[in-house]
Amino acid sequence: GAGLIGNVAGAADDLEPNSLEDIRSYNNYYEFGTGKSDPAENAGALDTSNWTIKVGGMVDNPGEYTLDELVGDLTQEERIYRFRCVEAWSMVVPWNGVELADVLNKVGVQSGGNYVAFETVVQPENMPGVRRNVIPFPYKEGLRMDEAMHPLTMLATGIYGEPLANQNGAPIRLVVPWKYGFKSIKSIVSINVVAEQPETTWKDINFREYGFFANVNPNVSHPRWSQATERVIGGGLFSARKDTLLYNGYDEVASLYEGMDPNALY
């Protein structure tokens, strides 16, 4: 793991993080509306008190964990990651949190547990997007076990050393920097270790447009727009587009997908 962490730090050297204001004001969180400013406007209503995460499936220690019980005793990390949305925009976020692998090792993954499935909280009374049914809820995401165990993958609880704002997925969210942003599920209330590839929201809505892997890949277009370049958030009205990097620049994950058709990995 140490070598990989070294690479992470190396990759982070040239990254200039976006301002906290940018990170908190430009979000996709459809439970609070489909506009980019809707989450910042509406997410204040999210109730994050007495938060528990239900851990289940093929694990040794299932149960309802408080935030502190789940991650309080694990090594806290600060990771500056590129964040690339499937909509072809990107920002740089300094996350605080723990490696998902540490959480999974703590709860004990049983053999045959090939995938991890996550779910976002549903609070219809506090979430206008849920009442409007813009997409099916609860929002679901998943990772293959080797992806979940990769040292780059983290469960974040903060940004810039401050607790996550609700619109950023408070109090705890997934961060998988080499995948399109929709994989990095927010406000997690359920973690399940399962044998088969779980349901994932966007793929279930439209499998032609969104895959399970959803690795950042400039060579495979979204059917409705190109993924070759990205708009950089925070650069103003005349900011230049940037070339998108395979795996969002995190080449160390390439070995996870050896032998698979790269065109199937969008």
Partner: peptide, 8 residues
């Protein structure tokens, strides 16, 4: 907002 191009 922080991404004025798409907004405009």
């Amino acid at each position: 907002g922080p991404e004025p191009i798409n907004a405009l």
